[in-house]
Design a protein around this nucleic acid. Structure first.
Lengths: 246, 246
DNA sequence: TACTTGATGTGGTTGGACCACATCCTCTAG
DNA sequence: CTAGAGGATGTGGTCCAACCACATCAAGTA
């Protein structure tokens, strides 16, 4: 019933007023993707608030992946509306993992849930699926660990996108980002990387084959085993919230 | 491989430096839940930055549901660490729905996915499940539409929590928040509210019965039908991003 | 014509000032 | 000795006036 961006009974903080104004502009369509906000000084004068408050609001929107601020002049300058839900969700999840309020095990479990669903619903004619196939090809010939892992991230994101649900895709990406450092550290625990990589490649082939075979149920099971197997082999310890901290 | 909060090659903005410092404090445990950040002026001097930059960082953390800022003196004053992942995810989703980048239909579909999974995994001895049962009892006797809807929100959140996955719970809550206004407007479209309410009550009973019967698969199917049925009856139109805007 | 050079406009950062508020401490009146 | 009034202190909230770095564009110059 309540909403954290609207305080009904006590005075709204100034930057929240700016936030609400911008959100209204977005909702009404007067501010669309790719559009530019008025300059900070102009917006401040227009709304009769200080530039400080405008900047605080913009900072929040930037953290939410809604705008991007660029200095100088020209096309890349000014504050423009973008759409990067993954950034917002990822940062938020990562911070809450840092406070030990969101267990890494729950994140992995959620990733399994979302990705299983996604591959079960993947459309075989999806461009994202074609991209996944291409990435898999690259991984066949790739023997550099870091590059392999980077390709692996993009492969799984492409799989998630193949279902055509933007929310699921964004959440998958954010989960990945939130445990990025964790997964990286886990890789160092693997006893034999080459053997693991070979297994991963084989499993990727099986997953794609199941999808192209229109066997969504089998694909989902394979993906779940693929992810859980990796974390299990690397020795996931849910109690440690962030092994990669400095 | 990239991360939006770490810019490797060009100078980091000052508020991001502050953000990183605070995140490190959180990760290392020096700053825990319920703990208080140094006063803005102190932190500014300590990190050798302006108070403005400190404030921008705190504003971001506040939007992420990581801290809460309170004026005055005493226990409620100062900037203290909280843990409200739902707020962050909810605001982010809502904003991106406003930009028409996240279709409402995808949000509903994701909600079905998460909630089905949650009830399938619900533990019958979970306190959240007991709470859900209590809420259902209240709804049996409730004939006020707004109150009924409020209870319904809490009922479904309790169901989601019964699976014991904090990430899934947070995401469920945020999805709810993001389409709150949308769902409210849809309710007005219903031809016969009393009839709908009666159906919802019956379905709630069936869902809880299936869970307590340890029939997770049936519970999941019932929940999916329950949610999809509601939106279908109210006439979900995925193209309209936010019917409740001013 | 080609290049230099300033004008312009953007966000980024800083220091200082003042406000409202809530608590705590001290001093005073009873 | 107690109870209350009133200031001291410290918190975030807000605003202002500068200055910087940067990128583009236009005018002036060789």
């Amino acid at each position: 019933m309540w909403s954290n961006h609207i305080k009904y009974h006590w005075p709204m903080r100034t930057h929240q007023l700016v936030l609400q104004w911008i959100e209204n502009q977005l909702s009404s369509g007067e501010l669309a993707l790719g559009g530019r906000l008025p300059a900070e000084r102009m917006l401040a004068e227009q709304l009769q608030v200080s530039r400080t408050s405008v900047r605080e609001a913009i900072r929040v929107l930037e953290a939410m992946g809604v705008v991007r601020a660029g200095v100088g002049s020209g096309p890349d300058a000014g504050t423009v509306v973008i759409a990067d839900p993954t950034a917002a969700l990822g940062s938020a999840l990562r911070l809450h993992v840092a406070t030990s309020h969101l267990p890494v095990a729950d994140i992995v479990q959620t990733r399994v849930l979302l990705e299983s669903w996604a591959v079960a619903r993947a459309r075989t004619d999806s461009p994202a699926l074609a991209e996944a196939a291409g990435l898999m090809e690259k991984m066949e010939a790739c023997h550099d660990t870091d590059e392999f892992l980077a390709l692996d991230v993009r492969f799984h994101l492409a799989l998630a996108e193949a279902a055509g649900n933007a929310v699921v895709s964004a959440m998958m990406g954010s989960l990945r980002e939130a445990i990025q450092s964790y997964a990286g550290k886990l890789t160092a625990n693997l006893p034999d990387w080459e053997a693991t990589a070979a297994r991963l490649r084989a499993e990727h082939r099986e997953i794609l084959a199941a999808i192209n075979n229109h066997d969504g149920g089998r694909a989902a099971g394979l993906v779940a085993a693929h992810i859980e197997g990796y974390y299990k082999e690397a020795g996931l310890d849910p109690r440690d919230s962030d092994p990669a901290r400095q």
